[in-house]
Write a protein that binds this DNA or RNA. Structure first.
Lengths: 335, 335
DNA sequence: CTGTTAGCGCGTTCAG
DNA sequence: CTGAACGCGCTAACAG
């Protein structure tokens, strides 16, 4: 392997000059730069990033913790992160935690071991140990950001949409269509984001003097199968709702299938709304009404923020809200 | 930052002993190990992987080149890779190439720069420059494997299913249902995998003395939208097919939507088969008949192979075939 | 089994 | 603007 020393010899300069010519060309005279570049070319030299990172004490790498890569929702966020990262010579180390605490802990370690400079968490758990009840960021933590989710207690800077408002918008729309019996299939209980969506649902109902009815509340796990089950469950209860708001598109698609299996006509006999705006929602039958989240932008935004923090800036605000949008398609009908 | 020297001082041993106690405990006496471990504990020492990697000249990291992370097909493969990797203390550096040559080139560089030890490519392009017509692996290339796709000219070791056989199986099944006018929506032309599937389609037809009819051939890009368009196109031709085989599930789902938009009854008026067995296929209406690919296993297998190669073994065979399976659901009916 | 020693390849002083 | 020299933290010989 040709190293910096070889290049220096070839160019008849010192290794320091080679290093400078490559990293800070402006600090080297034009002629010397030329000489060095030629030597680099002819020798086929490439910096050893391992040595570079070691010396610089940073890896130019960011860990992205994803609860489940197989969930297409995260894919576009990762793409956004990747785009910004790679355009700034940063690498993305992906970790599919599967909600497993040990995996999450491992992500924290990657950073303490200097394998990465910071962590972006798309899930809801902090990968560092901390005392329960803690309400502030531990200055010992490495750069740490969240996206989509945020932390209920600790003000970890995060990028997301206004879930309360978005959910309220959905329900308000259903109310406007004349629905009164609106069910809600929620996602994992420990998700702040789901609590927010429920809050929005609840707020909107109250706004129309309707009280939240336990019988129209079901619980899912953000998966197709859980949406299916939750809907089956809902349909088995005494009084059926006329519309169902699902906390994500996958559950909504599962719910649609459950309705079909019960021979319900969609959307005539049941209106269904999702959340996230996955591409698949455009190809369901009927096409899914949903809330669009700017996933690419969320990814780009959180990575940009990460770069700023790594550059030494302190984040001013702890939560950045990006705009969402209600996308009306065919899965909802007026009563 | 506490380093190995501090621990050595604390434990009253040499730094070499600390290093050994941590990396090869069996080479150190029980007592010394104890002492070291206590010192590690009390000081809160964590190895600096950057230094470790630098010294060892390897990064324990593998790059995975994915053509498009947003394609859920790849997610499970990545999960398989990740599982095996992390259980062997390896990291996965994900790169979404988007079919962009520059991005692919960049992946090659990551390895030459020692940022990663090997590359797993889920797409169809080799990330290194090579002379056209080359028919063998360049020994200068770093460890390089493919999965799903393989290379038509160069025997890059790869893990995949037998696409010819699988496609033939689909068509044979449709023939058995009485279909004779079987269309095929193919994926990207430059994909060997698609050429294989077309080959299988063609073989099966020939087996029944039916010749491939140009009018029932359409071209897609593996996306929902392209499947939709291809089907629309097919439906606009003089004579309509009675069944359509799509080179992947997304196109099949797109095709179903196109049929619905033309008020065709599925599967009565049009049988549709996909390929890959995405979860979404179980939630379409009708549920999608498709070929199941063992995606997790493909990922696990290719990563296992990578570990072997990184351990110095030479791969014996260049192609590993994993079993596929025809999954019959509701999107196909007898004529 | 343990300690001493020599770098790995690079960035970065500090003189010149 | 350039070069000599040092050291980052760790592992791997080698010697004891």
């Amino acid at each position: 392997m040709v190293n910096i020393k070889d290049v220096a010899k070839l160019a008849n300069v010192s290794i320091a000059t080679v290093s400078r010519a490559l990293a800070q060309p402006e600090k080297v005279s034009g002629k010397t730069r030329e000489k060095v570049m030629r030597a680099v070319q002819s020798s086929g030299y490439v910096v050893n990033t391992l040595a570079q990172n070691f010396r610089r004490r940073r890896s130019n790498t960011v860990v992205v913790m994803v609860p489940d890569i197989a969930n297409p929702f995260f894919a576009n966020i990762i793409q956004g992160i990747e785009r910004v990262a790679s355009s700034h010579k940063y690498r993305v180390l992906l970790s599919d935690t599967q909600g497993n605490e040990e995996n999450e802990r491992a992500c924290g370690e990657i950073v303490t071991q200097k394998q990465a400079d910071g962590i972006i968490c798309l899930g809801r758990n902090i990968p560092f140990a901390y005392r329960k009840g803690r309400k502030s960021i531990d200055p010992a933590w490495p750069p740490f950001l969240m996206a989509c989710e945020y932390h209920g207690e600790i003000p970890v800077p995060s990028v997301c949409i206004d879930n309360v408002a978005a959910a309220a918008e959905v329900v308000t729309y259903l109310l406007a269509l004349g629905h009164r019996k609106i069910a809600y299939i929620n996602g994992p209980k420990d998700s702040v984001l789901c609590q927010d969506r429920f809050q929005g649902y609840s707020n909107a109902l109250h706004g129309s003097n309707i009280r939240v009815n336990k019988h129209w509340l079901a619980q899912g796990e953000f998966t197709l199968a859980s949406g299916y089950e939750a809907m089956k469950n809902l349909l088995g209860r005494k009084q059926r709702p006329t519309a169902v708001f699902c906390a994500n598109d996958e559950m909504a698609i599962g719910a649609m299938q459950a309705c079909r299996d019960e021979d319900l006509v969609l959307p005539g006999e049941m209106s269904i709304v999702g959340f996230d705006d996955l591409v698949f929602g455009e190809y369901t039958s009927p096409r899914l009404t949903t809330i669009h989240q700017p996933r690419n932008e969320i990814g780009e935004c959180v990575m940009t923020l990460m770069l700023e923090i790594l550059a030494g800036e302190k984040p001013k605000i702890s939560r950045i809200f990006l705009p969402h949008k209600l996308v009306i398609r065919e899965s909802t009908a007026s009563l």
